[in-house]
């Protein structure tokens, strides 16, 4: 899973850093002439960093959510209006003057689109699967519509939590939908 590989990568990098720092610290106890040719080493160190980060960027940027399922027509569109401290979800457009929603069912293995906006402050629209994993998200901003496309491959109940601090009941602002 995505989060697990992130954590693994982080621990790996942290481990390397700890080893290097510890090694260098203890090397000062048995001092001799210091690092030979540090300028040249620093140059290589810098180049390797640039190289690694360059690869990392070129691999990850195309996977950005803005480009997901861009060329497809979604099988279903869900309008989302977030407001303190409730989500309205509807297959019809939501009128901000009298917002209302209804239970949402979505098809599995087909592209669906969430059109997310906010009626007051900034909110988050984060989709969690049944095991409590965050699978995707976008923000809800007043005056704008964010379009989040996603293909659910697992049927089940999904939860939506607010992930942008929006006030006193932020922690209980939530809704859910089912994927069949």
């Amino acid at each position: 899973m995505h989060q697990n590989s992130i954590l693994l990568l982080f621990f790996f990098l942290m481990g390397i850093a700890l080893i290097v720092f510890t090694y260098i610290f203890f090397s000062s106890k048995k001092a001799d002439q210091g690092m030979s040719n540090p300028l040249k080493k620093r140059f290589w160190f810098f180049l390797i960093l640039v190289f690694i980060l360059g690869i990392f960027a070129s691999v990850t940027i195309p996977n950005s959510p803005y480009f997901a399922h861009a060329g497809e027509t979604p099988a279903k569109v869900v309008h989302v209006a977030a407001a303190q401290f409730i989500f309205y979800m509807s297959e019809q457009a939501i009128d901000p003057a009298k917002p209302s929603g209804h239970p949402i069912e979505l098809p599995a293995n087909e592209v669906v689109e969430f059109r997310v906006t906010s009626l007051d402050v900034n909110h988050g629209f984060a989709i969690y699967d049944e095991t409590g994993r965050l699978i995707t998200q976008t923000q809800a901003m007043p005056g704008y519509v964010n379009r989040l496309r996603y293909k659910f491959d697992q049927p089940g109940k999904y939860h939506v939590l607010c992930l942008e601090y929006c006030g006193i009941a932020h922690q209980i602002m939530r809704t859910s939908f089912t994927v069949n």
Binding site: F67, A70, G143, Y144, V145, R147, R149
Partner: peptide, 8 residues
């Protein structure tokens, strides 16, 4: 052609 957002 998909654009991830638009202004209301």
């Amino acid at each position: 052609v998909f654009s991830p957002t638009y202004r209301l």
